[in-house]
Design a protein around this nucleic acid. Structure first.
Length: 927
RNA sequence: ACGACCGUAGCUCAGUUGGUUAGAGCACUACCUUGACAUGGUAGGGGUCGGUGGUUCAAAUCCACUCGGUCGUACCA
């Protein structure tokens, strides 16, 4: 084995081996239960970002863990067609050649999208493989597959039959750039600077005017009323009168409605039912007509005076203001902050716009979905996300599912010449069901479905629904959904509704909601900020120049170029080292706590790369000491276990129990930390060092050597299985060399993936060994401390004197002499009898036992006195604290007995130690 | 405005149902090329747990208020 671990060499090799051998497929022997996860489908033409890498690491770790536990495990992979996003990419490609999709037509355009999918569609699945994702690729699905398309049609038709899908003319969120409706969720409202204009609307009877306040004066052409509050004394006598709309000349009524806020503006609101959601509702209440004044492009249509027709809404706005001003009807212009709705894809200002769209009537579907979470059939982890879910579900609006784009599931509805609508899975079915003869012309709806419509079926459509498949029966409901909180509404809630409706089952029993990955400063990673990291670059490494190039190429806002370049050069002066998949995965696992923000820090990644190297070298050490030697595989031969052997086996059981507990709570950070701590601080720092005492001692018997070799190998073999779900590659590579030494034989030896996950055996926990080994550690640490504080060079071997030995210390000393000499670097250990007088020495205590290091030639008197003084004051402080507590009668009467006892013991122990230290101080002082 | 979450060492974060001297990693200091590993070892410094008040024998932990931050939802034209 090489001195340093090289991830590149082993990763590709093992991944191919696993996949080719079908280890990612569910095992057929389901003696245990089943376990299944569906991947939140990434955009098929997208590429892996840090969020994916984090999420997929979590899923893969869970899946590998359950697979090894013996569950019949399926990780169902697949990708999403991402309607608008993908269409935009292809349109941009066309735009580069100077053509639009309309130039080439629908069919040709769709072909182009499929071509683009074929070109780029493997990128993300290849990247997932680089991450080590053990998904069953043989079952990979795509939302535009035939099978999934069948499911989409089935659902659409059934919902329509039940009246839960309907077509209606309503106000929708209209994206005038993309020319499509979008759902509420795809609109992001942010505060922007604008103006509040106060406009005089003359009363028709000529007796004056009302002043209305508006942020959108261009919509006045569509005004159908002016509203005031019914209690507003200023306008009481005007209710029921009319005003004459300036620039238009239309008479519109003054109505009273308590929706109006008397305090805001002038207390008068213009009502434009076709261009404002609130006004639309009010329009319905008062039977106002709905006058649309805009085109698909959000320009003025021919319902407005000639002068304004064809003007873009913002141009029209300026013109209206100018013209009102000229008419002296503009009362005032105030600066005003307002919420401006923008499309999450196009960033254009969204227009409330009157169109025909398809909707899902959602209330009836929402009810059981709310109940499923309320009654615990679905559990959010962490639990508080329930609130977010309920909050949304209780205020849910009908879902606009039609999109005026070309890439997606075309709506299975056909129209005849008279405008009759027929819904069915195919034109043929529609004709048959409705007895439509071949002469009757039918035209399919041009629109496609919201991408999330097909995603909402993902948990069951990927398993073969509407067919009654074995997979449906086995793996649905899935065990857990691993997802970010940003798509609880988009996806999670809708999947719950659809699954309950069509399978009668919840889609998943648990929802593990993880945080979102941010950069080291806590900023969201985004291309436009230039702070994105590509997980593959962390794995393979990247030079600074390449990174700068990557971050600054294809930018939407080139003016940011120099800023991004500068920041990148500063932060990654030497580029990024190749850390390997395992280190990156371990980093993600260690970040998977309950927090909402995951800050990704390269230094942590480096730390975990070192950890991987530590495992590698521990393996080298074990191999070096056990290869071609008797590792106790033949159980008929006698073995003797050393204290250290028994201790590390005990500790191993504890860590196994911890890991199990943390897995069940989805605390992968704690899983990672427990393993890190055990492997580094216990197995490597102490056990491997202690094993040297047995292995290198000429006095060791064959039984002892066999016992230690067996433990070295056995514990390491178990460690590798324990950690495999997080770091699959290095654990496999190391396991392959270690497993034979641990006597692993048989078919399942082909891969660590086929091995059983370790389980805690409480009978192997030996409390006495733990206590004794703690004593050994204290002994060694005590001496190391003195060495360090007294500046004794590490290579200097010390002669120790021991005083105040009780029988236990004597026994333990006998047991561990070789270890102590080796690890504390000792020349000799001498026990002083009570009659012998010790020379001047530095001292440390282990329990009541005194360890003396003679000072002659080594230690300066003043330095030692200083050290002892420090110790005295520390101990005195403690005693004060304990005494105060124990002399508090309230504490003594109220606290539980065990606690009081503990405090008393602490006090006694500290007092004894202090006494010893004080004596020592006096002794040295008197020299 | 409502709701959720967060505030612990220089940085990133753990800290279970209240109960050792509040922990880890990174960074920092000193010493060390010892035979698994310098991607290492040994030892060390560093925190009034955002603030105030309360409950309790005992609060980082529970409660109230407050300050700061993040996110979500709803918003007055």
């Amino acid at each position: 084995m090489e001195k340093h671990f090289d991830p590149k060499e082993i990763e590709a090799k093992w991944y191919q081996n696993w996949e080719n051998n079908g280890y990612f497929k569910p095992s057929q022997s389901s003696s245990n239960g089943t376990y299944s996860i569906v991947i939140p489908p990434p955009n098929v033409t997208g590429s892996l970002h840090m969020g994916h890498a984090f999420q997929d690491t979590i899923m893969d770790t869970l899946v590998r863990y359950h697979r090894m536990k013996g569950d019949e495990t399926l990780w169902q992979p697949g990708t999403d067609h991402a309607g608008i996003a993908t269409q935009m990419v292809v349109e941009r490609q066309l735009a580069a050649q100077g053509i639009t999709r309309h130039d080439i037509g629908r069919e040709e355009f769709i072909n182009k999208v499929w071509q683009w999918k074929a070109e780029s569609g493997n990128t993300i699945t290849k990247q997932l493989r680089r991450l080590g994702a053990s998904a069953d690729w043989s079952r990979e699905r795509f939302t535009m597959d035939d099978g999934l398309s069948t499911a989409v049609k089935e659902v659409f038709v059934r919902l329509h039959k039940e009246g839960l899908i309907y077509r209606g003319k309503r106000l929708v969120n209209w994206d005038p750039v993309l020319h499509t409706a979008v759902s509420d969720l795809e609109v992001i409202s942010t505060e922007e600077n604008g103006y509040l204009w106060q406009i005089k609307y003359p009363l028709t009877n000529g007796s004056g005017y009302l002043i209305v306040a508006t942020t959108r004066p261009e919509t006045m052409f569509g005004d159908q009323a002016v509203a005031v509050h019914p209690d507003d004394e200023r306008y009481q006598d005007l209710i029921g009168e009319t005003i004459t709309l300036p620039l238009v000349g239309r008479k519109i009524p003054i109505i009273a409605d308590d929706y109006v806020d008397m305090e805001f503006g002038t207390g008068c609101v213009k009502i434009t039912p076709a261009h404002d959601f609130n006004d639309y509702e009010m329009g319905k209440r008062y039977n106002l007509s709905i006058l649309n004044i805009m085109t698909d492009n959000a320009a003025m249509n021919n319902e407005v005076p000639d002068k304004y027709q064809g003007l873009d809404r913002f141009v029209a706005r300026k013109q209206v203001i100018k013209d009102l001003e000229a008419l002296k009807l503009l009362d005032e212009t105030k600066k005003h902050k307002l919420m401006v709705p923008r499309g999450d894809r196009s960033n254009s200002v969204i227009e409330p716009y009157l169109t025909d769209q398809w909707y899902v009537a959602i209330t009836e579907l929402a009810k059981p979905a709310i109940d499923a979470v309320k009654n615990g059939n679905i559990e959010f982890i962490p639990k508080n996300w329930e609130n977010t879910y309920f909050e949304w579900m209780n205020n849910i609006q009908d879902w606009c599912i039609s999109r005026q784009i070309w890439w997606g599931h075309r709506i299975p509805a056909w129209y005849d010449d008279k405008g009759n609508i027929f819904v069915g899975k195919s034109e043929q079915e529609v004709r048959t069901e409705n007895n439509l003869s071949a002469e009757i012309k039918l035209k399919q709806d041009d629109d496609v479905l919201d991408t999330w419509f097909s995603s909402a079926l993902w948990s069951f459509s990927t398993l073969g629904w509407p067919e009654k498949t074995v997979e449906m029966q086995k793996f649905h409901p899935t065990s857990v959904l691993v997802t970010g909180f940003d798509i609880i509404f988009f996806w999670v809630a809708r999947m719950i509704m659809m699954s309950l409706k069509f399978t009668g089952e919840v889609p998943f029993k648990q929802i593990y909601v993880h945080g979102l990955v941010r950069d080291g400063e806590g900023q969201k990673m985004s291309k436009s900020k230039g702070n994105v990291l590509d997980p593959i670059d962390l794995i393979d490494g990247i030079t600074l120049e390449e990174l700068v190039k990557k971050r600054t190429s294809g930018m939407m806002q080139p003016e940011k170029y120099s800023k991004i370049e500068k920041a990148t050069r500063k932060q990654f002066a030497d580029g990024i080292d190749p850390y390997g998949t395992d280190a990156v995965r371990f980093t993600f696992a260690s970040l998977a706590s309950n927090g909402r923000d995951i800050r990704f820090d390269l230094n942590q990644c480096e730390g975990y790369r070192n950890f991987c190297n530590k495992i590698w070298n521990a393996t080298r050490y074990v191999l070096m000491n056990t290869k071609n030697q008797d590792t106790g595989i033949d159980s008929s031969l006698p073995t003797t276990l050393s204290l250290a052997d028994k201790w590390i086996v005990s500790k191993l059981q504890q860590v196994e129990a911890d890991v199990d507990k943390h897995f069940s709570n989805y605390r992968l950070d704690l899983v990672a930390n427990s393993l890190y701590e055990f492997i580094w601080s216990e197995y490597c720092d102490w056990y491997l060092e202690l094993s040297k005492a047995t292995l290198n001692s000429e006095d060791s018997t064959e039984e002892q050597l066999r016992g230690t070799r067996k433990t070295l190998v056995g514990v390491l073999e178990t460690i590798l299985r324990l950690i495999h779900p997080i770091i699959p590659f290095i654990s496999e590579e190391a396991w392959q060399v270690i497993a034979p030494l641990a006597g692993k034989t048989g078919q399942n030896n082909a891969s660590i993936m086929l091995q059983k996950y370790p389980k805690c055996d409480y009978s192997k926990i030996d409390a006495e060994s733990i206590e004794e080994l703690e004593w050994v550690k204290d002994f060694i640490s005590g001496i190391r401390k003195i060495r360090s504080e007294m500046n004794i060079i590490p290579s200097k071997k010390l002669s120790l004197l021991l005083e105040q030995m009780d029988s236990k210390s004597k026994k333990w000393l006998d047991n561990n002499k070789i270890s102590l000499i080796l690890l504390a670097k000792l020349e000799s250990i001498t026990i002083l009898s009570s009659s012998q007088i010790a020379p001047e020495s530095a001292v440390t205590l282990v329990g009541n036992m005194k360890i003396l290091i003679p000072m002659a030639g080594l230690i300066d008197k003043q330095t030692e006195l200083q050290r002892l003084n420090k110790e005295v004051s520390r101990l005195s402080d403690e005693i004060k604290r304990f005494t105060a507590k124990l002399s508090n009668t309230k504490f003594v009467t109220n606290a539980p007995k065990e606690i009081i006892l503990k405090e008393k013991q602490k006090l006694l122990k500290t007092e004894a130690t202090l006494k010893n230290i004080k004596e020592q101080h006096e002794k040295i002082n008197n020299l």
